[in-house]
């Protein structure tokens, strides 16, 4: 089973990296970019028997830092 974990900064947490990318896009002449947030995509290949609870636990314990980040678990196939 292929799993994608999308990790993003929580709303309200300043994202200096996103801000720098935003400025760079403006520097390239792209208009109308209102905000940029940079996150992380983690792809896992796990046994089909892996439970949702186990996936959630992986995210809470290691893959995301829930003080500053949200995550979304996507089952790809």
């Amino acid at each position: 089973m292929k799993i994608r974990v999308h990790v993003s900064l929580k709303p309200g947490v300043l994202d200096p990296q996103g801000r720098a990318v935003h400025h760079a896009l403006e520097g390239l002449g792209f208009e109308g970019v209102e905000d940029v947030r940079v996150g992380r995509l983690i792809e896992l290949e796990v046994a089909d028997s892996t439970s949702d609870d186990a996936l959630t636990e992986m995210c809470d314990k290691l893959l995301a830092n829930t003080v500053i980040e949200n995550y979304r678990i996507e089952k790809v196939a």
Partner: peptide, 17 residues
């Protein structure tokens, strides 16, 4: 220590990058 939950909060990239 913050990642281990022994202290509150988190340390992020410096605002200046």
């Amino acid at each position: 220590l913050t990642e281990a939950g022994l202290l509150p909060g988190a340390l992020m990239r410096n605002a200046s990058q």
